[in-house]
């Protein structure tokens, strides 16, 4: 895909310009940059970081092309954003859920452009990940064609959860995202063993993904993991007062200086 084919992306910048940059990448379908804007982003900006958030293609107020949702398309979008002249030096990448998968994929493709990666409730892209994600997206799209689904979500999970799903419906029904995720380019596993980028991975205690922590520590040469007690997958939005300080600690531990020296 050429630069001319890249969709328009909605970007929000807060915090001082020209400073150490933290780029925040959100999750898939029911997510957008507000997961950061309304939670941890203001604290990062107040601590003096230049914070960049964006709506990934198909999400929020970014363009929603009918096709082009393989993982590598999302990674290319991030690369294009970091080509901006006002982004100087290696950046810290933070990814939530699917956004963490994009961040890890980007780290593998462009290790020289980042100082560190922090992922929240994420897993690296594998064939099993692509099949699972595609199935979840296709299943959601199928269920949403039944008019009883949204009222059921509202009764079961609450009005706001139903609202999030309603906002995600044009992406699920109007694009090829489920098929495209299944067709994503998946990196060979041995490449992860050479990734010389420090990675911190955060999981909720009750999340299905919590078992990923020891696997990621074994796979990546420089990886530490943290567990947030008493929470499931939604740790970013559910516990910003825990995850925010954890992010500040992580980006403040000198990764950028080390990256600049190498």
């Amino acid at each position: 895909m050429t630069a001319a084919c890249l969709p328009h992306l909605n970007v929000e910048r807060i915090g001082p310009a020209g400073r150490e940059t933290v780029v925040l990448v959100h999750g898939i379908a029911t997510d957008n940059l507000t997961s950061y804007y309304f939670t941890v982003a203001p604290a990062l900006a107040a601590a003096g970081y230049s914070v960049m958030m964006y709506d990934q293609r198909g999400h929020g107020r970014s363009e929603r092309p009918p096709t082009g949702y393989r993982l590598e398309h999302f990674t290319q979008d991030l690369a294009a954003l970091l080509d901006r002249p006002d982004i100087t030096g290696p950046v810290h990448l933070v990814g939530n859920s699917f956004g963490g998968t994009v961040a890890l994929d980007f780290a593998l493709c462009h290790p020289d452009r980042i100082a560190s990666v922090l992922v929240v409730e994420s897993e690296p892209p594998t064939d099993a990940w692509a099949a699972k994600m595609s199935g979840l997206l296709a299943g959601s799209a199928h269920r949403l064609r039944d008019e009883r689904t949204l009222p059921w979500i509202e009764r079961t999970y609450g009005r706001h959860e139903a609202r999030l799903v309603r906002w995600a419906t044009p992406l699920l029904h109007g694009t090829t995202i489920a098929e495209d995720i299944a067709a994503s380019r998946i990196p060979a596993e041995e490449r992860w063993r050479d990734l010389e980028v420090p990675v911190c991975a955060v999981y909720g205690e009750y999340s299905d993904l919590a078992a990923m922590a020891p696997r990621l520590e074994r796979l990546l040469p420089d990886c530490r993991t943290r567990q947030v007690a008493g929470h499931g997958h939604s740790v970013l939005v559910g516990t910003p007062h825990t995850v925010g300080p954890l992010m500040l600690d992580w980006v403040g531990t000198g990764h950028r200086a080390k990256a600049a020296r190498t």
Binding site: N10, L33, F38, G60, R61
Partner: peptide, 14 residues
């Protein structure tokens, strides 16, 4: 904003 005008949360940021 959200309940009455049906704004999405991202619209609030905009």
């Amino acid at each position: 904003f959200v309940e009455d005008l049906d704004l999405e949360s991202i619209d609030l940021v905009t």
